[in-house]
Protein backbone atom coordinates (compact mmCIF):
# COMPACT_ATOMS: atom_id res chain seq x y z
CA UNK A 1 0.00 0.00 0.00
CA UNK A 2 1.36 3.36 -0.78
CA UNK A 3 -0.06 6.66 0.32
CA UNK A 4 1.27 9.66 -1.49
CA UNK A 5 2.01 12.76 0.52
CA UNK A 6 -0.62 14.70 -1.38
CA UNK A 7 -3.23 12.05 -0.65
CA UNK A 8 -2.26 12.10 3.00
CA UNK A 9 -2.77 15.84 3.18
CA UNK A 10 -6.12 15.49 1.43
CA UNK A 11 -7.31 12.83 3.88
CA UNK A 12 -6.16 14.91 6.85
CA UNK A 13 -8.02 17.92 5.49
CA UNK A 14 -11.21 15.95 4.92
CA UNK A 15 -11.06 14.46 8.43
CA UNK A 16 -10.75 17.94 9.87
CA UNK A 17 -13.84 18.95 7.93
CA UNK A 18 -15.60 15.95 9.44
CA UNK A 19 -14.94 17.36 12.89
CA UNK A 20 -16.87 20.46 11.92
CA UNK A 21 -19.94 18.28 11.39
CA UNK A 22 -20.27 17.66 15.13
CA UNK A 23 -20.86 21.28 16.19
CA UNK A 24 -22.97 21.73 13.07
CA UNK A 25 -25.38 19.03 14.20
CA UNK A 26 -25.57 20.68 17.62
CA UNK A 27 -26.39 23.93 15.92
CA UNK A 28 -29.26 22.34 14.07
CA UNK A 29 -30.59 20.93 17.33
CA UNK A 30 -30.33 24.42 18.80
CA UNK A 31 -32.30 25.98 15.96
CA UNK A 32 -34.96 23.29 16.25
CA UNK A 33 -35.40 24.03 19.95
CA UNK A 34 -38.50 26.13 20.38
CA UNK A 35 -38.73 28.85 22.95
CA UNK A 36 -39.49 27.51 26.40
CA UNK A 37 -42.58 28.70 28.16
CA UNK A 38 -42.16 31.67 30.47
CA UNK A 39 -43.33 31.63 34.06
CA UNK A 40 -44.32 35.26 33.79
CA UNK A 41 -42.10 36.58 36.55
CA UNK A 42 -40.06 39.65 35.71
CA UNK A 43 -37.74 41.25 38.21
CA UNK A 44 -37.37 44.99 38.00
CA UNK A 45 -36.12 47.91 40.02
CA UNK A 46 -37.46 51.38 40.69
CA UNK A 47 -35.00 54.06 41.77
CA UNK A 48 -36.49 57.13 43.42
CA UNK A 49 -34.05 59.87 42.47
CA UNK A 50 -35.86 62.33 44.79
CA UNK A 51 -34.97 60.22 47.80
CA UNK A 52 -31.60 59.21 46.40
CA UNK A 53 -30.36 62.73 45.77
CA UNK A 54 -31.22 63.92 49.29
CA UNK A 55 -27.92 62.77 50.69
CA UNK A 56 -25.30 64.27 48.45
CA UNK A 57 -22.23 62.18 47.79
CA UNK A 58 -23.76 59.03 49.29
CA UNK A 59 -22.25 55.89 47.75
CA UNK A 60 -23.70 53.22 50.05
CA UNK A 61 -25.30 51.14 47.31
CA UNK A 62 -22.16 51.29 45.16
CA UNK A 63 -19.86 50.36 48.03
CA UNK A 64 -22.05 47.47 49.13
CA UNK A 65 -22.38 46.07 45.63
CA UNK A 66 -18.72 46.38 44.77
CA UNK A 67 -17.72 44.86 48.08
CA UNK A 68 -19.95 41.78 47.94
CA UNK A 69 -19.03 41.15 44.33
CA UNK A 70 -15.30 41.73 44.67
CA UNK A 71 -15.25 44.55 42.13
CA UNK A 72 -11.74 46.03 41.99
CA UNK A 73 -11.02 49.73 42.21
CA UNK A 74 -8.06 50.59 39.99
CA UNK A 75 -6.25 53.83 40.63
CA UNK A 76 -3.51 55.52 38.64
CA UNK A 77 -0.08 56.07 40.19
CA UNK A 78 -1.08 59.68 40.93
CA UNK A 79 -4.08 58.50 42.95
CA UNK A 80 -6.72 59.45 40.38
CA UNK A 81 -9.27 56.82 39.34
CA UNK A 82 -8.16 54.70 36.38
CA UNK A 83 -10.94 55.38 33.86
CA UNK A 84 -9.45 53.14 31.19
CA UNK A 85 -9.40 49.89 33.15
CA UNK A 86 -12.38 50.79 35.32
CA UNK A 87 -14.88 48.12 36.34
CA UNK A 88 -18.25 49.05 37.76
CA UNK A 89 -21.58 47.33 38.27
CA UNK A 90 -23.52 50.27 39.68
CA UNK A 91 -22.44 53.90 39.70
CA UNK A 92 -23.58 57.51 39.54
CA UNK A 93 -23.87 59.53 36.34
CA UNK A 94 -24.93 63.12 35.77
CA UNK A 95 -28.63 63.27 34.90
CA UNK A 96 -27.77 64.73 31.50
CA UNK A 97 -25.41 61.86 30.74
CA UNK A 98 -27.64 59.06 31.97
CA UNK A 99 -30.77 60.49 30.33
CA UNK A 100 -29.23 62.27 27.38
CA UNK A 101 -32.47 62.15 25.39
CA UNK A 102 -34.26 63.98 28.22
CA UNK A 103 -31.57 66.60 28.45
CA UNK A 104 -32.20 70.25 27.55
CA UNK A 105 -30.81 73.64 28.37
CA UNK A 106 -33.66 74.79 30.62
CA UNK A 107 -34.01 71.72 32.77
CA UNK A 108 -34.63 72.70 36.39
CA UNK A 109 -31.49 73.28 38.39
CA UNK A 110 -32.49 70.56 40.82
CA UNK A 111 -32.76 67.92 38.10
CA UNK A 112 -29.56 69.10 36.39
CA UNK A 113 -27.65 68.36 39.55
CA UNK A 114 -29.07 64.91 40.10
CA UNK A 115 -26.53 62.13 40.06
CA UNK A 116 -28.52 59.17 38.79
CA UNK A 117 -27.64 55.68 39.94
CA UNK A 118 -27.16 53.51 36.85
CA UNK A 119 -26.61 49.79 36.44
CA UNK A 120 -27.42 46.98 34.01
CA UNK A 121 -30.96 47.56 32.76
CA UNK A 122 -31.80 43.85 32.49
CA UNK A 123 -33.57 44.66 29.24
CA UNK A 124 -36.54 42.74 27.94
CA UNK A 125 -34.76 42.62 24.56
CA UNK A 126 -31.11 42.70 25.54
CA UNK A 127 -28.82 43.46 22.56
CA UNK A 128 -25.85 42.06 24.51
CA UNK A 129 -27.52 38.64 24.66
CA UNK A 130 -28.29 38.43 20.96
CA UNK A 131 -24.72 39.25 19.94
CA UNK A 132 -22.87 36.94 22.35
CA UNK A 133 -21.20 34.23 20.22
CA UNK A 134 -21.01 31.68 23.07
CA UNK A 135 -24.16 32.29 25.12
CA UNK A 136 -21.95 33.42 27.98
CA UNK A 137 -24.57 36.06 28.63
CA UNK A 138 -28.25 35.14 28.45
CA UNK A 139 -31.64 36.08 29.75
CA UNK A 140 -33.12 33.87 32.45
CA UNK A 141 -36.59 32.68 31.45
CA UNK A 142 -37.88 32.42 35.01
CA UNK A 143 -37.29 36.02 36.12
CA UNK A 144 -35.79 38.02 33.27
CA UNK A 145 -32.35 38.52 34.81
CA UNK A 146 -29.63 39.05 32.20
CA UNK A 147 -26.98 36.65 33.49
CA UNK A 148 -23.27 36.22 32.92
CA UNK A 149 -21.26 32.99 32.83
CA UNK A 150 -17.67 33.93 33.53
CA UNK A 151 -16.54 30.38 32.86
CA UNK A 152 -17.65 30.63 29.28
CA UNK A 153 -16.94 34.24 28.26
CA UNK A 154 -14.21 34.43 25.62
CA UNK A 155 -13.64 38.14 26.09
CA UNK A 156 -14.55 39.25 22.57
CA UNK A 157 -16.34 42.33 24.00
CA UNK A 158 -19.08 42.24 21.39
CA UNK A 159 -21.61 42.67 24.24
CA UNK A 160 -19.87 45.88 25.30
CA UNK A 161 -20.22 47.22 21.77
CA UNK A 162 -23.88 46.20 21.73
CA UNK A 163 -24.95 47.61 25.12
CA UNK A 164 -26.55 51.06 24.67
CA UNK A 165 -26.18 51.82 28.38
CA UNK A 166 -22.44 51.34 28.93
CA UNK A 167 -23.32 48.84 31.64
CA UNK A 168 -20.65 46.29 30.89
CA UNK A 169 -17.06 46.21 32.05
CA UNK A 170 -14.13 44.19 30.76
CA UNK A 171 -11.32 42.88 32.91
CA UNK A 172 -8.46 44.55 31.11
CA UNK A 173 -6.14 43.22 33.83
CA UNK A 174 -6.21 40.81 36.74
CA UNK A 175 -8.63 42.27 39.32
CA UNK A 176 -6.69 40.59 42.12
CA UNK A 177 -3.84 43.04 41.57
CA UNK A 178 -5.80 45.51 43.68
CA UNK A 179 -8.45 43.52 45.56
CA UNK A 180 -7.33 43.51 49.15
CA UNK A 181 -10.19 42.12 51.16
CA UNK A 182 -12.33 39.68 49.28
CA UNK A 183 -15.79 38.37 49.95
CA UNK A 184 -15.00 34.65 50.02
CA UNK A 185 -18.65 33.85 49.40
CA UNK A 186 -18.39 35.19 45.85
CA UNK A 187 -15.71 34.66 43.24
CA UNK A 188 -13.52 37.37 41.78
CA UNK A 189 -13.13 37.46 38.03
CA UNK A 190 -10.07 36.66 35.97
CA UNK A 191 -8.53 38.95 33.40
CA UNK A 192 -10.09 38.81 29.98
CA UNK A 193 -13.79 38.36 30.76
CA UNK A 194 -16.71 40.78 30.74
CA UNK A 195 -18.75 41.42 33.87
CA UNK A 196 -21.79 43.37 35.00
CA UNK A 197 -24.63 43.48 37.52
CA UNK A 198 -26.62 40.24 37.73
CA UNK A 199 -29.32 41.57 40.07
CA UNK A 200 -27.58 39.72 42.93
CA UNK A 201 -29.02 36.41 41.74
CA UNK A 202 -26.77 34.67 44.30
CA UNK A 203 -28.45 36.64 47.10
CA UNK A 204 -31.94 36.22 45.66
CA UNK A 205 -31.46 32.45 45.84
CA UNK A 206 -31.01 32.86 49.59
CA UNK A 207 -34.12 34.91 49.93
CA UNK A 208 -32.17 38.16 50.31
CA UNK A 209 -32.70 41.44 48.51
CA UNK A 210 -30.01 42.77 46.17
CA UNK A 211 -27.11 44.33 48.07
CA UNK A 212 -27.78 47.86 46.74
CA UNK A 213 -31.41 47.69 47.87
CA UNK A 214 -30.41 46.62 51.37
CA UNK A 215 -27.64 49.16 51.58
CA UNK A 216 -29.76 52.21 50.74
CA UNK A 217 -30.60 54.02 53.96
CA UNK A 218 -33.09 56.25 52.17
CA UNK A 219 -35.01 53.23 50.81
CA UNK A 220 -34.73 54.84 47.40
CA UNK A 221 -34.40 51.52 45.57
CA UNK A 222 -37.38 49.18 45.37
CA UNK A 223 -36.99 45.75 43.84
CA UNK A 224 -39.53 43.12 42.91
CA UNK A 225 -41.63 41.23 40.39
CA UNK A 226 -43.14 43.74 38.03
CA UNK A 227 -45.63 41.20 36.70
CA UNK A 228 -47.14 40.83 40.17
CA UNK A 229 -49.83 43.53 40.51
CA UNK A 230 -49.57 43.44 44.30
CA UNK A 231 -45.81 43.97 44.48
CA UNK A 232 -44.31 47.08 46.05
CA UNK A 233 -42.68 48.06 42.81
CA UNK A 234 -45.97 47.93 40.93
CA UNK A 235 -47.61 50.14 43.54
CA UNK A 236 -44.75 52.58 43.23
CA UNK A 237 -44.95 52.64 39.45
CA UNK A 238 -48.70 53.16 39.40
CA UNK A 239 -48.48 56.12 41.78
CA UNK A 240 -45.48 57.94 40.31
CA UNK A 241 -44.24 59.29 37.01
CA UNK A 242 -41.32 57.14 35.94
CA UNK A 243 -38.81 57.40 33.11
CA UNK A 244 -36.54 54.89 31.40
CA UNK A 245 -33.11 55.27 29.86
CA UNK A 246 -33.26 55.46 26.04
CA UNK A 247 -36.76 53.98 25.73
CA UNK A 248 -36.75 54.60 21.97
CA UNK A 249 -34.26 51.81 21.30
CA UNK A 250 -36.80 49.08 21.97
CA UNK A 251 -34.68 47.32 24.57
CA UNK A 252 -37.34 47.82 27.25
CA UNK A 253 -35.22 48.32 30.37
CA UNK A 254 -36.23 46.98 33.78
CA UNK A 255 -34.78 49.89 35.75
CA UNK A 256 -37.39 52.62 36.29
CA UNK A 257 -36.56 56.08 37.57
CA UNK A 258 -38.77 58.42 39.59
CA UNK A 259 -37.63 62.02 39.17
Amino acid sequence: MSIKRRDFIKITGLSTLGLVAIPASELLAEIAKTETSKSGKKLAMAIDLRKCSKEEGCTDCIDACHKVHNVPNFVLPDGKPNRKDEIKWIWKEHFGHAFNDNQHEFLSEKIQHIEAVVLCNHCENPPCVSVCPTKATWKRDEDGIVMMDWHRCIGCRYCIAACPYGSRSFNWRDPREVLEEQNTDFPTRMKGVVEKCTFCNERLSRGLQPACVEACKANAIVFGDIHDPKSDIRKLLSNNFTILRKPGLGTNPAIYYIV
Partner: peptide
Protein backbone atom coordinates in the same frame (compact mmCIF):
# COMPACT_ATOMS: atom_id res chain seq x y z
CA UNK B 1 -16.40 26.71 45.49
CA UNK B 2 -17.08 29.70 47.76
CA UNK B 3 -17.23 29.77 51.53
CA UNK B 4 -18.52 32.06 54.21
CA UNK B 5 -15.70 33.92 55.82
CA UNK B 6 -16.69 35.49 59.11
CA UNK B 7 -14.08 38.22 58.99
CA UNK B 8 -15.09 39.52 55.61
CA UNK B 9 -18.74 39.14 56.48
CA UNK B 10 -18.09 41.50 59.39
CA UNK B 11 -16.47 43.97 57.05
CA UNK B 12 -19.46 43.80 54.76
CA UNK B 13 -21.82 44.31 57.66
CA UNK B 14 -20.30 47.68 58.34
CA UNK B 15 -21.54 48.97 55.01
CA UNK B 16 -24.95 47.35 55.11
CA UNK B 17 -26.73 45.11 57.53
CA UNK B 18 -27.68 41.56 56.71
Amino acid sequence: LSYINTEVETILNTSYSI
